[in-house]
Design a protein around this nucleic acid. Structure first.
Length: 482
RNA sequence: GACCCCAUCGUCUAACGGUUAGGACAUCACUCUUUCAAGGUGAAAAUACGGGUUCGAUUCCCGUUGGGGUCACCA
């Protein structure tokens, strides 16, 4: 049997990182097993329609590199891939169920349903359930109501007293009692199907072999199993993934931080890092490897090694992986990204040669976790210091510092086309002549050049900004700080 | 509340009956570097609890506790 899996999000406006993880596992599983990865949009809730949501979702997926073989914008033999365009299909199958007694029309008003619920609550029933009231309507009564256009839904006719047992690749055998299962609405009064109906019909029609989805669906899986049984269809293999969690161990949600892939993208996270990180939330290859590119994930992935328990989304580890992936990038890749970042910054109007930026990258690569930090952590490569760190002044700027720096400045002035080594030699000579340690010069010099106490190697800074700029900055510092 | 799922360092996890319970992030120390990082070395840090099964349980079974998910004409 050929492997076909799908990612079936509802278009809520953005791609949730939990959704990303689900999509990724589906993708990895498909690629690993020479299967097909399908994108299906579950847009059956008209009340939740969001303009541009599908485009957004697709953009995020594509940014991550999770390309699908079939989907709304790429087509395929099993379309359409938007559930809102498949209404007639669901209707046909619902009719089939009705004619076979596995589903029935229900004309109950929301008011009656509400009352029923209250009644059941008052009786302290373990669970509020529909009372099959409309199941007992005669054929004629149903026809009459239908012809009068009375609003109605179609409900699943759950047979009580049955055990519903299914296998889950990740959780093993899972068992439910049909007494605990409500007569789920299959077709809503607006003619749209509910998730349960559309999901089962589409998975079957699209020949989905493995349903890989979040654990939040585990409880409704018996309803789906019932549907497969009533239709006489073969069950797909189920794999319910552990949830992604907030630091307080509740289901990962918007309230406790960023949750959309686009948020992480906007913050400068690399797609490689995000993929790598999210892949390790609930899965590992069984070894100690932590750094992965997606190709290696495809090679190693298996559903059998997916964990059962939820995983906290630990931003610290993501940050570390981002830094790792950043450092693993070539200088030329980083150059492209840095230019992009600069064009969005206040230094957009600066004209800096590739050569200059490459030197900056080389000097700062080990010190940044995000591309924009080349700018925020070393602004001194892009402008003169406009202020000087107070703490550093107190610590390193002494009364005789200006005189010493003047001497150093004059020494630098004599250099011709100096290399890093030339600067170093000049500095050490000056220190010698002054009878002081090199540190006495280096610290105030760093302050003069950068305005701060941390950053790139001092000789890198000297070399990169150049002699003229160096002299200018020393003068400015002396004038400002006295 | 009912149903279902889950349970190893703070966090992500390894160990598929026998290990000094391993690794990574984070934390701390030392080291390298006259900065800060990165790197290196090291430290602290876990099998929720109680019963079984077994010569032997992190591992298998049962219970307790704890956490989570689901209980819509939302997905």
């Amino acid at each position: 049997m050929s492997i076909r899996v799908r990612f079936a999000p509802s278009p809520t406006g953005y791609l949730h990182v939990g959704g990303l993880r689900t999509a990724l596992y589906n993708y990895l599983f498909a690629r690993k097993n020479n299967g097909k990865f399908i994108l299906r949009i579950e847009d059956t809730d008209r009340n939740r329609y969001v303009e541009g949501a599908v485009e957004n979702l697709i953009n995020s997926l594509k940014w991550c590199g999770l390309n699908y073989d079939e989907g709304p914008d790429v087509g395929g033999d099993f379309g359409p891939y938007m559930q809102s365009q498949r209404l007639d299909i669901y209707k046909t199958y619902a009719d089939k169920l009705i004619s076979e007694g596995h589903a029935y029309y229900c004309f109950c008003t929301p008011e009656r349903l509400e009352e029923l619920r209250k009644e059941q609550m008052a009786k302290k029933l373990p669970q509020a359930k529909y009372d099959k009231h409309c199941l007992h309507l005669s054929r004629d009564e149903v026809q009459k109501k239908l012809s009068k256009n009375i609003p109605h839904v179609v409900r699943l006719n759950v047979e009580p007293g049955k055990k519903i047992i299914f296998e889950d690749v990740i959780r093993g055998t899972v068992e439910f009692d049909s007494d605990n299962i409500d007569d789920q609405v299959l077709i809503k009064s607006d003619g749209y199907p509910t998730y349960h109906m559309a999901n089962v019909v589409d998975d079957h029609l699209m020949q989905i072999s493995h349903v890989i989805r979040g654990e939040e669906w585990l409880s409704s899986t018996p309803k789906h199993v019932l549907l497969y049984n009533y239709f006489g269809w073969e069950l797909p293999t189920f794999a319910h993934l552990p949830l992604l969690l907030n630091p307080d161990r509740s289901k990962l949600s918007k309230r406790q931080g960023d949750v959309a892939v686009e948020d992480y993208r906007a913050k400068g996270y690399l797609k490689e890092a995000l993929i790598n990180f999210v892949a390790l939330l609930g899965w590992n290859a069984g070894d100690d490897k932590e750094f992965y590119y997606i190709e290696e994930l495809i090679e190693k992935f298996s559903l059998e090694r997916v964990n059962k328990s939820g995983a906290v989304f630990d931003i610290e580890k993501l940050n570390w992986l981002n830094a790792e992936h950043l450092r693993a990038k070539s200088d030329t890749d980083l150059l492209t990204m840095l230019k992009e970042e600069l064009s969005k910054s206040k230094y957009a109007d600066l004209t800096l040669s590739d050569d200059y930026l490459l030197h900056v990258i080389h000097a700062m690569k080990e010190r940044v976790s995000f591309v924009n930090e080349f700018i925020t952590k070393s602004p001194y490569f892009f402008e003169m210091p406009s202020s000087y760190e107070e703490k550093t002044i107190e610590k390193n700027w002494e009364p005789d510092t200006p005189e010493q720096l003047k001497k150093l400045r004059d020494k630098f002035a004599l250099l011709e086309n100096p290399s890093r080594k030339d600067y170093e030699k000049a500095l050490k000579e000056t220190a010698n002549e002054l009878g002081i340690g090199a540190g006495k010069l280096i610290h105030p010099l760093r302050l003069a050049l950068s305005g701060m106490s941390t950053g790139a190697g001092i000789y890198d800074i000297l070399f990169i900004i150049g002699k003229d700029e160096t002299i200018k900055r020393i003068n400015q510092a002396i004038n400002t700080l006295k």
